[in-house]
């Protein structure tokens, strides 16, 4: 049996990181909020960098509920898009160079999104992960949660439904 020689580590890393940054940097609103993504293999952790403009209650102070909801929605959409693109990026079917030039494939659209606010968001960095519960041809269901100091004490959780881009056009 002939085994394919594994690709050099830097080739693998560069391909994945380039694709991810093209995906994230293509969303101006994620840049506005200061959201970036850490990647370990195919696992993503969203990072919300604290800024004074994210405050909703200056007396506590606490992050704006809308910021927390938006952070989770960005995490869910990027997480779902990443899961959708992963196979294509790894197989070479999706050319990373064209992603880098700004030609992104059609992304999923939010149908509905529900956020539960569990604790008030403190004025410091936040983290979030998304889990694609079901991804069908037309619809997908995604859960996401966000935390700050302690992952076992989430500040919010969310669930959303998404319309997948049509692949027949």
């Amino acid at each position: 049996m002939i085994r394919k020689t594994p690709e050099p580590v830097q080739v693998v890393k560069q391909r994945r990181d380039t694709a991810l940054s093209a995906l994230v940097e293509g969303v101006p609103y994620a840049q506005f909020l200061g959201i970036s993504f850490d990647r370990r293999g195919d696992e993503l952790t969203a990072v919300l960098r604290y800024d004074e403009k994210l405050i909703g209650n200056p007396r506590l102070p606490a992050l704006h509920g809308g910021v927390t909801a938006a952070f989770l929605e960005v995490t869910a959409i990027i997480g779902l898009s990443w899961a959708m693109l992963w196979e294509g990026i790894e197989s070479g079917r999706i050319d990373v160079a064209t992603l880098e030039e700004g030609t992104l494939p059609r992304l999923p659209k939010t149908i509905d999104f529900t956020t539960d606010f569990l604790r008030s968001g403190l004025p410091r960095d936040g983290y979030a992960r998304a889990h694609v519960t079901r991804s069908g041809r037309r619809y997908a269901s995604v859960n996401a949660y966000a935390w700050q100091d302690n992952r076992d004490r989430p500040i919010a959780q969310a669930t959303g439904h998404f319309l997948m881009p049509r692949t027949d056009v």
């Binding site: 509920g65 809308g66 938006a70 929605e73 960005v74 999104f113």
Partner: peptide, 13 residues
């Protein structure tokens, strides 16, 4: 098109 998250922040406020 404006991000859904921005619409969420507006709705929440």
């Amino acid at each position: 098109v404006i991000h859904g998250g921005a619409v969420s922040a507006l709705m929440d406020t």
